[in-house]
């Protein structure tokens, strides 16, 4: 049994993370932008922010040129990349790029890229899912998908030993990681992620998704929580989970998140889930390439 850590200690350790270089410098102003309505965001200041950190600029250019965004002509300037990616997606990419820099160091024997591949895959799937059911803001689904497992990535840094034990238990017992986490150290990445979301003043919807994406009752939550929960499952089952398969059978249509979504999105009934599942194969190939780029630059 691992040591149980309380959430106040988690909060304290997150605050101590500020001593890690680059995060406060880039992340704080970024988050300030993120909390504004899109029409108030100044493209110029975003471009400046990106330009002041070479590795970020390179990442943005590579992303903007990724086939995932289907551009016919290559993007050569930071300004071009910012416009091509769009504000929401840019925020998501910059945020994750900053966090990758923080978290790449403290991983021990756990491969952090696995978590990022899962997060990026979930972001893409959530966005596509949102589009298919005519959700008004698929970009928000992207951001929420990207950040939904923030708690896990954080746990890798602040208590890697406990997380490692939870991963082992999840693998050996064939149980979901969040259940294994609760058994191992008393709470899951939903709770640690919620503390981080609060500390870093993440957008309201993203924070709600981080906190509740493994709940049993989705009826009182934003639809984004259901969308990310289902996308999370599709990624896990599609092979971009946490690096090991859970041998389970899932009937998506009986998932409480599916039922909750149906009440607001009747178009869900028309979704060809089999085809959507087959389509994901392509995204997953691209996601792996993209994460490799993020970690190389």
């Amino acid at each position: 049994m691992s040591e149980i850590v309380n959430l106040d200690e988690v909060r304290q350790r997150i605050r101590n993370l500020d001593s890690v270089p680059i995060v406060p410098a880039i992340l704080r102003p970024l988050l300030n932008q993120l909390n504004r309505p899109p029409e108030d965001v100044k493209i110029g200041s975003l471009v400046e922010l990106v330009a002041c950190e070479n590795s970020l600029a390179a990442k943005c250019l590579q992303m903007a040129n990724s086939p995932l965004f289907g551009r016919a002509k290559p993007v050569n300037t930071i300004r071009g990349a910012v416009i091509a990616l769009g504000i929401q997606r840019l925020h998501a990419i910059l945020l994750s790029a900053c966090m990758i820099d923080v978290f790449r160091t403290a991983n021990g024997d756990i491969d952090v890229t696995v978590f990022w591949e899962h997060s990026f895959a979930c972001a893409l799937v959530a966005q596509q899912f949102a589009r298919k059911i005519n959700h008004p803001e698929p970009e928000k689904a992207h951001l929420a998908g990207l950040l939904h497992d923030l708690g896990l990535i954080l746990s890798l840094v602040i208590f890697p030993e406990q997380l490692r034990n939870a991963i082992t238990a999840s693998k050996n017992k064939n149980i979901p990681l969040e259940v294994a986490e609760r058994e191992t150290y008393g709470y899951s990445h939903c709770e640690t992620g919620a503390v981080a979301a609060q500390e870093w003043r993440l957008p309201k919807e993203a924070a709600e998704v981080i906190r509740y994406h493994h709940t049993d009752d989705f009826s009182d939550h934003d639809d984004l929580v259901s969308i990310v929960h289902l996308s999370d499952r599709l990624c896990q089952l599609g092979g971009l989970g946490y690096g090991y398969p859970l041998m389970i059978e899932v009937d998506m249509l009986k998932d409480p998140a599916w039922e909750a979504l149906l009440t607001h999105h009747p178009d869900l009934r028309k979704l060809d889930l089999a085809r959507f599942t087959f389509e994901l194969e392509t995204y997953f190939v691209e996601v792996k390439k993209m994460v490799a780029v993020l970690f190389r630059v």
């Binding site: 499952r233 599709l234 896990q236 089952l237 599609g238 092979g239 398969p245 859970l246 041998m247 389970i248 059978e249 899932v250 009937d251 998506m252 249509l253 060809d272 889930l273 089999a274 085809r275 599942t277 087959f278």
Partner: peptide
């Protein structure tokens, strides 16, 4: 990559790792 969509409504689609 084969599907019953549009051909049958009685069967339920279920997911397993890497397959349906």
């Amino acid at each position: 990559s084969e599907s019953l969509f549009g051909f049958n409504d009685d069967f339920r689609l279920v997911h397993f790792p890497g397959t349906t």
